[in-house]
Design a binder for these strands. Sequence first.
DNA 1: GCATGATCATGC
DNA 2: GCATGATCATGC
Length: 461
Amino acid sequence: MIYLTTDELMEKAKAAEGKTFGQIDLTNRLGNISSKGGLGQVIEESYFGYKVNSEARPDFDELNVELKVTPIKQNKNGTLSAKERLVLNIINYMEEVNFHFYNSSFWRKNEKLLLMFYEWKKGIDRKDYKIVKSVLFTYPEEDLEIIKQDWETIISKVRQGKAHELSEGDTNYLGACTKGSNKKQVRAQPFSNEPAMQRAFSLKQSYMTTLVRKYIKNEQLVKFANTSELKQKSLEQILQDKFAPYINQTLKEIASTVGVTYNTNSKSFVPSIISALLGIKGTRLDNIEEFAKANIQFKTIRLEPNGKPKESMSFENIDFDQWTSESWDDSYIRNRFLETKFLLVVFEYKETAKENPHRALYFKGIKLWNMPTPIIEKEVKEVWQEINNKIRDGIEIDYVKRGNKMVETNNLPKTKFNGIMHVRPKGANGSDKVTLPNGQIITKQCYWLNSSYIANIVSDV
DNA sequence: GCATGATCATGC
DNA sequence: GCATGATCATGC
């Protein structure tokens, strides 16, 4: 069957909404264990009636439409997310460097996508997954500018002979994700003899999540960068320029300039200053389109006059059941850092607390940062491994008297463990405990980045 | 001054 | 009720 118009194709695609893969799978690909057929292949073959191929041309070549069948999932809090990044075509390092964006393999194959979202549920048979929504997707113009920047970032790294150093954290919406059965699957690159891991262009999971929420939940986001700005400068440069006028002003002065009530007790105080100076006053940070799509999370840092924060930086509490049930490569903590960009908003005190207890906080600058892959693969992995070992062998939990109080101590990785990350209690109070997989009971624990490492990261701000 | 444990306040 | 960001308190 050949679809002559996109409307015709979409009519057919829409008719699949509400159907399960079992209802669609005419050739019983899914029932046949020896056939490793994917859900996408079932749709291609049984639903649209064309032969499965892996060509560089789009699936519906005449219409320039590429078919993508992709999972969504429901979160514990009821929201929807993309379950995965959307993996597109493999990057041929040798060839892609010869193109401009508009004749690149990425653009030729993925200019228009027919996205068919299905709902993944834990523990249910693939046959019973249901198609929820079919969408003909073309990139909004602002997104396309950012994707072009991302493509250039990836390609210029290959042109510098650094294809082996590519990482998903390099880019905002379009990523270069690893693709292959294992890490040994490598390819040649044109400007270095170093073999590089095989990678594919992909739309990041955070980007896909915003599409899921837009098309299925009608969720609206607010953007701060427009197309004409994005044609001139990178997303990071736009951010830098928006914050630049406030450097060396006190938090109080900035609040007054942007018209936000000065209230350091409010948890939304710094976030509301950020959205105000981005020109979208009143927008919650998780409703900022660029942040949601690129998975940018903000963190404030307060430096003491010596250039070091007084406190370490805390993250989520550790879900020990999860941390001990996953392999390193699929671990929560590894993906947390591989897939998150941090907008570090740096303030400094120019006096010590001793010199002046009412000291003012001055804005120093921002940094868009993601944790370097080598740190993730070494120091973060060490902490993950150590926690797994300690839980396997039993954590030493003691109760000792300090002053007139009893405190709980443990032998989880401390500040000196590797200079990057440590583990420390973080509960609401003394009785805020969790039960470990081995049955031990411990105060809730959190992972922290050492203050010395934070100082290091922002030393160039 | 730093390391480690404890816990507060806000907001959903 | 709980997660999160922030910061306090004690001991070396």
